[in-house]
Structure formats: C-alpha cells, structure tokens
Design a protein around this nucleic acid. Structure first.
Length: 421
DNA sequence: TCTGGGGTCCTTTTCCTT
DNA sequence: TCTGAAGGAAAAGGACCC
C-alpha cells in the first residue's frame, strides 16, 4: 500500500494515542478513595467480591472504605496482573506479572478484578470522541488507536500538537481519563513518540529527530521487536536502534531473514508507509481457559469434557452475536510443561453451530497425544465469513486431508473428553 | 515467584495433485 | 507402476501485540 494520491503536498501527520493506565484508571473512577494506594488489577473477570458488594450495598461504591477491599495476599489462583497503579509499581509490581509473585512484593496491595464490560464502554466512548474530530482512525486494541491528522482541519498546526491537545481535552472532559499522544510522519514513529511524555503528554517527532530521539532508544522500543528478537540483537552487540541503523541491510537480512531483516533496517531508519486502516474484518475468533489446577484427559475426563463443551458454546455464541460463520475449526492445548500444541481442520461448509463445532473440535483433539496433564484448553474458528456471503478463497474440492479417525493413532478411547453419558 | 486471554501475521512443514 | 520435481493449500508452530 502506498499513499493515496493526496491533492496537496501536505506532510503526513500520523498520531498514536494511548490511554494512560487504562484499566486502573477506569477502576479508580468508580473507587476514587483508592487513589494513591497500591492497586493491582487482574485475577479474573468477576465483579468485585460479592461479600463486599453485599455488605456495602447501601452506599455508593465511592464510600466503601479502602480497608474493606480484598488484598493481594489473600488471593489464591493462577492469574496475572493486567495492570498496576503507580504506587503498586513502586513495589516492583508490573503488568503481566503472576499474582502470586506480585503478592510477595506487595501483599497489602488491593486487588480488583477486571470489569471488562466497563472498560469496553469507556473504550467505545473515547474512540467515538476521536472519530467525531478526526474520522480516519484505526483501532489498535482496547486502549490504543492511530489517527491520520494529515487532512483534518488544524491537523498540521504546530506539527499536530494543536489537534492532539484538542483530542486530549475532549476525552478528559467526557470521561475524566487522560491519554498520551505522539505525532510523527508514520505509525512506527508515532507509536514510539506517544511514550515520550507519559502520562497525559504530547510528543511531536519529525525526521530531524531520528538521530537525537530515536536512535539512542533500546531496540525493544520498536513495536515489532519482542523478547526473542531483542535477545538475538543483543547477541550481535546491537543494543540501540541506532546500532541497528548502522548495520548494512544485507547483514540484517543474512541474520534475520529476507523479510524481518529488511523490516528491521527500515524500522531503524524510521521508515514506514503503512496506511491508517479504518476498518478490518476478523480473521479468527477463539475462546480459551486456564484451569485452576492441571487436568488429565483420562482422570479428569468429565471435568474436561464440560469445559470443552462450554468453550464451544461460548465460541458459537460469539460467532452468532457478531454475525460470522467459519470453516476452520481448531483446538489449542497447553500442557503442564507449558508446551503448546494446536490442531485444526477445515470443513467443507462454514458453520457457527455449537454442536458441529464441538464435534469437529473433538476430532482435532483426538489427534493429540494426551498423556501429559493439561493446563489450558482453547477452541478456535478461522476462515471466517458472513453467513450467505461465501468467503472468496477458491473452493477446491474440500476433501479432508486425513480423517481424524485415521489419525487417532494414539490409542485414545473414542469419546475421550466426551461428557459423561 | 512460575507465567491470562484474545488476537494478527509470518515461516516452516506436511500433504496432495499434476 | 514407480520416482521425482514443483507448486499450492492446509496445518502447525512461533513471535508478537494489547
């Protein structure tokens, strides 16, 4: 994709907006009395402890005394922290940290469950405010968007700062939430820029800032360099983005492959011409769950069967609610050693039916060696289309490559995982 | 101290057909 | 009938992101 032929030679102004500590901030709107205290968000989706809600049903949530809230030290389970407030971060608690570990670091921290519906409500609200002002917006998850400022009235003033300020102010007035915005010639740089002045900050980055502001940053700051690539880069002595930029493209291609190597080179030089995509169709939908304890396919058969059916029903309901059918059914398993295995199978006809899903996913499952205990089970549907509108992949003779029964060479009893009966 | 859930995209492997 | 190459699609795995 290249630039749409813009009539004028307006410089491209792309913004990246990131809500500040989104999940925690949403919770603090409801429980302002917790401001300044260490709070960790995570550990399941249920609403706040029923006991607590019941005990204080007679007063507004903002008047529940902080002492009454559940503490991290009392939590037993396998969750991770979605996010932590700054007071909690001072104890070393961070997002994606196991709650058991977090409890060791800060046992007295308040633990709040994620109220996902509430967070989604705020997500829709702030995005609606943005598109009212600047219609070319790309969803980047629950708390992030890209916005194309280029053609928006005022979008060029002060390099985009004026418009960024307007958006920040509008969101804050409507929701009480703050965000950080980076404006740059492309998405790659805008994303990095939005981190420069967190929280509630604005940063404008231009081509002239590459050497001074971007190259000194750690390689990991590039969106697309994760832990694996970072490790490999470090192994080559490349610590900063500037270190990568100093490498000849061919050297990177040789080490990282044609595609990723070339991309690394472009990214380090701040080059990125991806457009801001205002719409997208989902590719797959899935449901998965981690068990409270590891389960064995034979010894915990009934329990697993019930969970499996539940996942299929949830997924079928998700598909129906969003108006999709799919042709590729898949399962995902995580064993107690954390190894992940997936199996999938493409059907001749798309479906969103829970029973069909359950049956086909069951066949996928039979192709897996289930001697180890399981930690997680998931069900997925891919190759999505709208019912009635066939997806446009060529309809080759949709013959299964190998029937599941042929493949069920693990000596599994048929009906393994089936619910009792 | 063990490590969630929901996605996307890419690469490699496997299978099938010609 | 067997063998091998080539190419495409599906399956599997993995990295990455929020």
């Amino acid at each position: 994709m290249t630039d749409t032929a813009a009539p004028a030679a307006l410089p491209r102004r792309i913004a990246h907006l990131d809500m500040d500590a989104f999940y925690a901030s949403v919770e603090l709107l409801r429980y302002p009395q917790l401001k300044g205290l260490p709070v960790v968000i995570g550990g399941g989706r249920r609403r706040l402890d029923e006991a607590l809600a019941e005990r204080y049903a007679d007063r507004p949530t903002s008047e529940i005394p902080p002492e009454a809230f559940p503490r991290l030290k009392d939590y037993a389970g396998r969750g991770v922290a979605t996010t932590a407030t700054y007071p909690a971060r001072r104890f070393g608690v961070g997002s994606a940290m196991g709650l058991m570990k977090a409890a060791k670091l800060c046992p007295e921290a308040i633990l709040l469950p994620v109220d996902f519906d509430e967070v989604k409500r705020f997500s829709r609200q702030f995005k609606a405010i943005i598109t009212d002002i600047a219609p070319v917006m790309q969803d980047r998850g629950i708390d992030e968007v890209y916005i194309d400022f280029t053609e928006v009235p005022g979008g060029q003033r002060e390099g985009g700062r004026v418009l960024a300020r307007l958006i920040q102010k509008s969101i804050f007035q409507a929701t009480g939430l703050t965000c950080s915005i980076g404006v740059a010639p492309n998405k790659l740089l805008a994303k990095m820029a939005s981190e420069f002045n967190k929280p509630n900050g604005i940063a404008i980055v231009g081509p002239q800032d590459l050497e001074g502001s971007i190259w000194p940053l750690a390689v990991r700051k590039i969106n697309g360099i994760g832990p694996k690539a970072e490790e490999k880069l470090h192994g080559l002595g490349l610590k900063t983005i500037g270190d990568i930029a100093a490498q000849p493209r061919e050297a990177l291609v040789e080490r990282f492959g044609k595609s990723y190597g070339a991309w690394l080179h472009e990214a380090a030089w701040g080059r990125d011409d991806r457009p801001v995509e205002t719409s997208s169709e989902p590719v797959s939908m899935s449901r998965e769950t981690t068990f409270e304890r590891d389960l064995h396919a034979v010894r915990d058969r009934a329990e697993l069967g019930a969970i499996f059916t539940w996942l299929c029903e949830k997924l079928a309901a998700d598909l129906a609610r969003k108006g999709y059918v799919g042709r590729t059914v898949g399962v995902k398993l995580r064993f107690d050693d954390f190894k992940i295995v997936t199996r999938d199978q493409t059907l001749p006809q798309p479906t969103a039916d829970a029973a069909v899903l359950r049956r086909e996913a069951g066949l996928c499952l039979k192709r897996v060696d289930l001697s180890r205990k399981l930690r997680l089970l998931g069900v997925r549907m891919g190759t999505l289309s709208r019912p009635g509108e066939e997806e446009n992949t060529p309809q080759v003779s949709a013959k299964p490559r190998k029937s599941a029964t042929e493949n069920a060479a693990n000596g599994q009893a048929p009906g393994l995982f089936d619910e009792a009966g």
